[in-house]
């Protein structure tokens, strides 16, 4: 579990003999399609990348082989690093958008039909910043937009 993985290797870089550093297979330990496919998507969006793909070596091994080939002599670690950073930024934006939407969603109270936003204020622990946001939203439209 978590304690073991500290001893275990996290990332390996495998290069063929004589190959330049633009063609590298990274071995990501303890990962699967979850990170593999989302990271592949982000890296394939990069123009410097000629090829990007991954395989799960065997169902009983918890690691993936993640291959990157670049154009124009760029080191393969660069698109990997950029992909990881961009994926982090995407997650951060998803998280922020989600939290804003959730904070002013009218929470349904099962035994009464009180005003949704008021119920949301009462039932959720809202920090002071989003509370201000909430009151502003009270003046405008509340509820999902279609």
């Amino acid at each position: 579990m978590a304690a073991e993985s500290e001893k275990k290797q996290v990332l390996e870089m495998i290069q063929a003999d004589g190959a330049d550093e633009g063609c590298v297979t990274f071995v990501l330990h303890d990962e699967d399609h979850t990170l593999g496919n989302s990271l592949r998507y982000m890296i394939m969006k990069n123009v410097e990348v000629d090829f990007c793909g991954y395989t799960i070596t065997h169902p009983s091994e918890s690691k993936i082989n993640f291959r990157i080939q670049t154009r124009g002599g760029v080191a393969a670690t660069e698109p990997l690093r950029r992909g990881l950073n961009e994926l982090t930024d995407v997650c951060q934006h998803v998280l922020n958008t989600f939290q804003v939407r959730r904070n002013y969603f009218p929470t349904v109270n099962h035994n009464s039909s009180t005003s949704g936003v008021v119920a949301a204020v009462m039932s959720k622990k809202v920090d002071s910043d989003s509370m201000i946001f909430l009151t502003i939203k009270l003046l405008s439209v509340h509820g999902p937009e279609l």
Binding site: T34, S38, V90, T107, P144
Partner: peptide
């Protein structure tokens, strides 16, 4: 990118996530 909350109570939630690729949406699900 946008998210629209459709339903939320103590045990269930439905929301729309628009403008993202299946690779990332599927990562969240997994």
């Amino acid at each position: 990118f946008r998210i629209d909350m459709m339903h939320l109570d103590e045990s269930t939630m439905e929301f729309d996530m628009v403008g993202i690729d299946a690779a990332i949406a599927n990562a969240f699900r997994r």
